[in-house]
């Protein structure tokens, strides 16, 4: 039981720290840039994505043995799009202010690379429980990243954090940070810092072409570039690779066990 719990917790910390989708995997850049004009928008977007991601992982993992390989992409698209529609309707009904602030970016969760990436790379290969927690972990990692970026932009751009005055009134805020160019600037500073401090990230693997958000090919993401990203990141933090691969072996063992029981 305890081991079980650890396995789930491991997925959550993995999503928030080890493989943070925004800071480390550099996925889902469109919503990251678009909605981080304030920290509260980041919360709304992050949590909506978390719900979709966790449920999509759950459903796809549960049906992974019944879906023929050839039609899996349309199936993923339908599942994710249905979940997004449900989330959108719920937001419209209960938190209309968030729905209004995020606008078209809520339905656009459908094409968020993080979701297809996780579904294909993780949920399609792992059992229901861990997939669900993987979705929660990844979603929370995304949320945390959006809140940090959002708070940073809000602080510099309007002198506030979560709508409360944080800087003294005498300091003139740099309005460009809450406008469109500021989003690119903040992301540029972030990736430059990652380069400077040699933090693990998909954008600063030495000797390789950098990859930001899979070069746009999200649907074949996990098949090619995303897993590529994974590998590059793993190579860059070499000592962790071994523990990773043993973990994978363990996961496979468990899968095969499940198959036997069935």
């Amino acid at each position: 039981m305890n081991k079980q719990k650890n396995k789930y917790m491991e997925r959550i910390t993995n999503g928030i720290f080890t493989e943070n989708p925004t800071f480390i995997m550099m996925l889902g850049m469109c919503p990251t840039l678009a909605v981080t004009t304030s920290a509260i928008n980041g919360v709304g977007m992050g949590l909506s994505t978390t719900v979709v991601l966790a449920l999509a992982n759950l459903l796809i993992s549960a049906l992974r043995k019944f879906i023929p390989d050839k039609v899996r992409m349309p199936y993923y698209i339908v599942v994710v799009a249905s979940l997004v529609t449900i989330v959108q309707l719920l937001l419209e009904a209960y938190i209309p202010s968030v729905n209004k602030a995020l606008g078209v970016y809520i339905p656009l969760i459908v094409v968020n690379c993080i979701i297809f990436g996780r579904v294909e790379a993780y949920a399609a290969k792992n059992s229901v429980g861990v997939s669900f927690f993987d979705g929660i972990g990844m979603g929370l990692g995304f949320t945390v990243a959006l809140i940090i970026i959002g708070a940073f932009r809000e602080l510099l751009g309007s002198g506030m954090v979560f709508g409360f005055q944080a800087l003294p009134e005498s300091i003139e805020p740099i309005a460009i940070f809450v406008q469109a160019p500021g989003a690119f600037l903040v992301l540029a500073i972030l990736t430059a810092l990652q380069n400077k401090l040699k933090l693990p990230s998909a954008t600063n693997v030495p000797g390789k072409e950098f990859k930001l958000a899979c070069g746009g090919n999200c649907i074949e993401c996990s098949g090619s570039t995303c897993s590529d990203n994974h590998e590059k990141i793993n190579v860059s933090k070499d000592p962790l690779v071994k523990s990773k691969s043993t973990k994978n072996v363990e996961a496979e063992k468990e899968n095969s066990k499940g198959g036997l029981i069935r």
Partner: peptide
């Protein structure tokens, strides 16, 4: 500058372009 090689400089460029389009 070394830290800005790769994606940071591309994003800075995009930022300047966004300002121009502003």
């Amino acid at each position: 500058p070394k830290s800005f090689k790769g994606s940071p400089i591309v994003l800075i460029t995009a930022c300047l372009m966004a300002m121009a389009f502003y």
